[in-house]
Nucleic acid binder design. Sequence first.
DNA 1: CTAGCGTCA
DNA 2: TACTTGACGCTAG
Length: 775
Amino acid sequence: MVHTNTASECPKEMIALKMAQTEKLLPGNQNSVSMDSSSVDMKQLSTHAGSKGRTQHRQTSKPSKRENICSIGSSSSDAPTAVKKRVVPTFHRKASGLKEKTKNKPEKLSQMSIEQVMGTTHRVSGALVQAAKTVTSMSPSELAKLQEIISESSEMLMMLTYTDGSTQLREPNEPRKRASASLHEEGVANSVLVAIQRKAAKKEYMFVSFPLAGLGKENASEATRNVLLEILQSSTRKVCFDAQELMHAIIINYSLDPQSGCNKWVIMDPKIACWLLDPDNPPVTFSGMLKTFVTGKYNDQAPNNHLTHLELLGLVMGDLTNKLQRKNLWELFINLEVPLIPILAGMEVQGIQVNQKMLISYSNILKDEIKDVEKQCYKEAGHPFQITSHIQLRQVLFVELKLDEQCPGQKLARTNVQNLKSTSETVLHKLIDLHPLPELVLTHRQLVKLKSTYLDGLSDYVSGGYIHTSWDQTSAASGRLQSSNPNIQNIPKQPLQLHKDANGSVVNETTASSTTPATTLWMREPFYSHDGWSFFAADFQSIELRILAHLSQDAVLLKVFNDAGSTDIFVQLTCEWLGLNLDDVKTADRERTKRIVYSVIYGVGAERLAETLNDTKENAKAFTKSFLVKFKGVNTFAQRCISECQRHGHVKTIFHRHRLISNISSQNFHVRSHAERQAVNFVIQGSAADICKLAMIHIMKVLSEKNTVRARLLVQIHDELLFEVHDEDINEVKGILKTVMESTPTLGESICQLKVPLPVSLSYGKTWGHLKQMV
DNA sequence: CTAGCGTCA
DNA sequence: TACTTGACGCTAG
């Protein structure tokens, strides 16, 4: 506990707390405990700011107890939750310093604010001893007093500390050696520190600590947990830099249900606020974020301790709050992004069950296939070479076999930077009739990609039968969520068909006759639900196209989407273009149509469109023209976005999410065109992201209120939510998901009343490999 | 065309 | 040896 004035002003209870022994709280971090041993100034805090190349990963704990963690609704559950390998964004490789300099930085804090910061911290540091009181060592009466203080508090500033002495607000002094070497030693969440600002005296703090690391059953007493929950559930304004990480650590260490109670936790996160203000340059670390606010102001002699950092956190959040309000982003922040934080933390802890044996057996199948293809490649090339090496492949294809000289009239693509002859998929496709090698290489690539990324790569992340992916809220400029370690949003949907031809060698689908025996592998097959539960997917149908219809008010698009009972637009267009019957449209064809439509909308060039259409450049041009004539509103909408961007320097989504696009007025045609496409795309993709997030929040709210329904959210793939639902509750959940998600546009008050319906399609099954469509 | 992440050389 | 970069390919729209 710390108070900023004289001891005489303190209530008796607080004095008692102050006297308590606290050394064990901050192991290996004496500097931050008291002033006399701390000569570290703010400069040090800031040196970590844009330090790049910090690729180390940090884990929150921990082995031990995993029962009870994931019970949903009812108390019983058959789903264990595995240990979470959480890669914390704070230490991520994204080099903030590199990225930041290309864009405008937010305005500096006013001079006033800086004086306030420095003045305040100095005064705080002048207090006798600054150390937090450990909650587990408090007596019942002290706890009661603490609860009273919480209920009367005006603000609570929170952060995680780690066992190496670093915190969420101060990165470690020594760069870590290696992530794998330090996995169990360093970077484990150690405690939650909370500075509770008392209403009575503005600059008086109750400074308490909740242990996390090595939390035994006896320490995690009911009382301690309840106080922490009281803090999290209180209506007092709370602030934390990277609140998702904080919640994640709390859910795990206190064995909380990851998806019901915590959905109500509200913590302001300056990291997210900064990202909303400039989504292309999200802050990575707290000190990095400070740099964008108060550049060059760290020369002052300022103390470097936990409470100082927390005070700074509060001040920065206050400043960001004003900025968000001025930019009309506060509603987005408080109604969309902040409520999403506990949902993401819950998804991380929840994890998804994976059959590792299946991953390994698939991998072995592919290993043999790859060997076969390799042998054939060597035969066709006349000698062995490294097929995965573009340099060696270039040598074989263009120097030894001279295939490029055999395709007259065709301009073969070059690589972007070095302008070398490309060995990309489209180029190899053009060479397919000239020689057997290109197709073999394509097959080889496909197999190697699937094996290394989606089988072996995923297998590395399986822990206790689960994969716990990281969800990142602030890394996509469009407002979309991002998953990583592993990325669970790009696991192939289409199955891989393996055939054996007459020679017994492997070929892929395109060349094999349909009568040859086939092995079919779905990369999503190894993801499976628990006994008695099923996966349940709900996705918005063609959401971006519908948003385009709404925003552009294109008459044809509006009609297509408002005609009751009309079939899927991509199926319709596929029929139209290929002259098929509705029932004859294959999913792969529909997928192709979808790609083409979005490409054209977002301004694909004739050359590249010709490649996807497998047609001439002229025909591609004609196609684009006829498409844009059919949907006249698309072009006028695009021009509107571009001129809005030129006027304001940014574009906005329907929920006011904005993106600064400075190149919109570039003199360089190429650069400017790129910026124009970004502007148009952001408005639509960002608006879709807004609606998907709103749907996610709404559905989780409804599900947690209906505590009889057993359903948990596992994955979000942009327009799709993947749940795991108890078999007995499937019908009920089906109804809830459909009505709640489809009513999403009515929630955003009047701002997202769409001129088109937003239908949701549902599917379910025991594995993610092939889900059955529901009527 | 846009938005991402992971793998390999 | 460790780390970065470019090329490629998978997802979503």
